[in-house]
Design a protein around this nucleic acid. Structure first.
Lengths: 277, 277
DNA sequence: TGAATAGTGTCTATCAGACAGTATGAC
DNA sequence: GTCATACTGTCTGATAGACACTATTCA
């Protein structure tokens, strides 16, 4: 055990112990919070990335995150919420903890651990410029930044981009590609047994749109009748009285999530459309 | 954002940045790892607890854990494995991360975060003295320890005890009662859709014993025929050729987990025995 | 009226619990 | 033999996908 020292500054009573305890005497890991913010833009699962303005990994795209602030953050969830609201201005979307990842190699500053959250956002609440972009590695540019040719603030500091592309092809900072991959796997897995994907929908929506979102998330065609029965039996949605979406054909009833049902788990697994006979 | 300072020690190149970076200049949270070690003793779900020999919370029962050692632990999983092997001498049992919990109030030393793991152990591999005990709060005793009347090392430093009792009635150190509750909920939940509880079994076991373990975990009677079909369809177990458990009646075939199948997920949910007609 | 989408009813394949049956050994 | 436990086969109810049907609006 490395840290015998942690428990053994002098003092016989707990008060004496605490008064002689100073964390700065020990080698401790850094602790950060990173948030995988996902939203559907143009019917694609997209993630918000920030371009790091400072070392380490200056110029690389990364998940938004930050150090846990022991003076400002009441707890880890609050730290994650702070990151989300700082990046989007939206309060209380759906957010859940994905897990903690830490080792001595993922950050050049030393041994670091990060608690990763993933948040699902209604794209309609995002600013108008939140269209998915094709991102490129900006490190060549940031090398020029070092010479002072280009001041910081030039170029995009954050952007939404297609999540699978970002995880696979873009060279993300630190281990963020694997964090993003883990978040996407969680979303897709939960889509098969829980109502999680409804948190990607706007405040009101049609059942057809709801089905389309589930199909996007789980990557599989669903059968309309079975999907609607599933939603109905879960008692998850309520129809907005008198509200309809009028398009070019029969109007569709608008629904909203019943309060407190953002995490509904279905009784069975989603099996999806079988191959047609 | 609290931690602007974190990204902004001077230096134009990444190498210069890192050479001027010292974590000790910042207020950082403490990071620990705690492990909920569970095993079946006398057909009860039991947890290993340690009696804290030092401040803070001296004399209280707590989950085994320790500070992440940035010099010794390659990553968080390694830190958790170190805690398990230090406490039990057993290597590579089933272990998975439960999540991270952190705030400014859970530990009197200040803002701390802990990454919680839960491990499932085969009770047959534990030492003989690992029988479940009824534990009591030892703080009254430890008050005497402070006066020097009793030297440390007296009394049990670790013990196995019934998990639900420990979570509900024993006054555990820090927020360990809620961590234990969360781990038990995870175990019971996973028992309904995955083969997780098989990791509580010894190396070889009968199907009847396997069913009994699932019944203990999910707290519900199961139907024999359906349970066996579920196991068979999952292709999770293999019969040990020629090995039988001989009791007072027909011998039962012995099975073992197929290598790599410790985390099998069943296609459907476990529904359990319905009320008899 | 026809196209298009919304929404519903019914059939059926599949699956898991019910339960009775057989198998095998202890005594 | 009887009893106890191991193990299996068949029935049946429930669930969810298949698919056709009706409903409502727009052009």
């Amino acid at each position: 055990m490395v840290t015998k020292q942690h428990g053994r500054p002098g003092g016989a009573t707990e008060a004496e112990f605490l008064s002689s305890y100073d964390i700065r005497n020990y080698d401790v890991p850094l602790l950060t919070v990173d948030v995988v913010m996902l939203a559907l833009l143009e019917d694609r699962v997209c993630v918000q990335l920030v371009n790091r303005p400072e070392h380490p990994c200056r110029g690389m795209w990364a998940l938004p995150g930050g150090f846990v602030d022991i003076h400002q953050d009441a707890d880890l969830d609050a730290a994650a919420s702070r990151v989300v609201s700082t990046k989007t201005g939206i309060q209380t979307p759906y957010i859940e903890q994905l897990g903690a990842f830490g080792d001595g190699a993922r950050d050049p500053r030393g041994w670091t651990a990060t608690v990763v959250y993933f948040a699902l956002l209604d794209a309609e609440l995002l600013p108008r410029d939140a269209a998915p972009r094709v991102l490129t590695d900006l490190r060549a540019k940031s090398m020029r930044l070092q010479t002072g040719e280009i001041v910081t603030g030039d170029g995009p500091v954050s952007a939404w981009t297609e999540a699978d592309t970002a995880a696979g092809e873009l060279n993300l900072a630190f281990d963020h590609a694997s964090l993003l991959t883990a978040a996407l796997a969680r979303l897709r897995s939960k889509g098969t047994y829980s109502a999680l994907p409804v948190n990607l929908l706007p405040a009101t929506f049609t059942l057809s749109r709801c089905q389309a979102v589930f199909e996007l998330v789980v990557g599989q065609r669903l059968e309309k009748s079975a999907f609607r029965r599933r939603l109905h039996d879960a008692d998850l949605l309520e129809q907005v009285p008198g509200a309809f979406e009028r398009g070019s054909n029969r109007p569709a009833a608008l629904y909203r999530i019943k309060p407190g049902h953002e995490q509904t788990v279905f009784p069975g697994m989603l099996r999806g459309e079988r191959s047609r006979r």
